[in-house]
Design a protein around this nucleic acid. Structure first.
Lengths: 142, 142
DNA sequence: ATTGACCTTAGAGTTGACTCTAAGCTTATA
DNA sequence: TATAAGCTTAGAGTCAACTCTAAGGTCAAT
């Protein structure tokens, strides 16, 4: 059984974050000492690592909650439920990627157009481009 | 001279957002009526459009503030100042793109590995992958 | 027995960019 | 003139995921 700081070292999450995740139902300590200290079993560690993996992929804490409930009772859930969540996250990631790629291209174009030198900005092509409004539009939806 | 709702239609920003930007020094109304209504000149409109262009590219409001001060007094600023800000934003965008691309690949790999069917999740390869922790790590720095 | 590291809690603060509310003027239309 | 649409302000609320604080209890080592 590990104490919270030991779980923190193991998972790379801070003790603060572990308590925060507990408050949100993501991580549990299967035992408490008489004085209230959290103690984590091997299964608790596995669960914490699951949470961390899911977080690393970009799942929201809400998503992770759903994934955990599936993990806890696999019999009652289908693969399709899991792929639905995953596909939805992939769609979000792809949408954000498209926005960022547009920004990237615009920024690169601007940088190519500007001398970047120590001369004053009276004829700076970046400022002019922003003034002209001829920059591509890409804003996050949500 | 335009009223705030007219500027809102023109720029696609909401009147709320325009006031919010004013509070942060980004947009100004060069006149106020006796009753306090904001009135925007052509120059004010240009400025608002500049702000919107910069925002669309992904610049933070703080960045936009700096860009505006350069725009207002081009003589006192160099092209290099402008490219520094732009390059820095491009670096951020590239960093985030790399993270998202890692997520994208991981999510695609997971989706390929799972049948996604109506069978129960007892052997779901996505759940297993998250359990095993064999997912790539990519978290935003800031 | 004392020090210091670690643990507990509830709850507040952070970030960035909005978004909304309430209460009250002003202006345009019928 | 009455009504509705639009404007004003200060300030609070929203989102997600932490991050930190304060005040105090616990534990291991000297």
């Amino acid at each position: 059984m590990l104490k919270i700081s030991e779980l923190a070292v193991l998972t790379g999450l801070s003790a603060h974050t572990i308590r925060f995740y507990e408050k949100h139902g993501l991580i549990e300590a299967s035992k408490r000492s008489d004085s209230g200290y959290r103690y984590y079993s091997d299964a608790d560690v596995k669960r914490a690592e699951f949470v961390k993996s899911a977080r690393n992929i970009g799942f929201s804490l809400d998503d992770i909650g759903v994934l955990l409930s599936i993990r806890l009772d696999k019999q009652s859930h289908s693969c399709q439920e899991v792929t639905d969540i995953t596909q939805h996250k992939l769609d979000e990631v792809n949408a954000r990627l498209a926005e960022l790629q547009t920004m990237q291209q615009t920024l690169e174009r601007l940088l190519e157009s500007c001398c970047g030198g120590p001369e004053n900005a009276t004829h700076c092509s970046i400022i002019e481009a922003l003034d002209g409004g001829d920059v591509t539009v890409a804003r996050r939806a949500s």
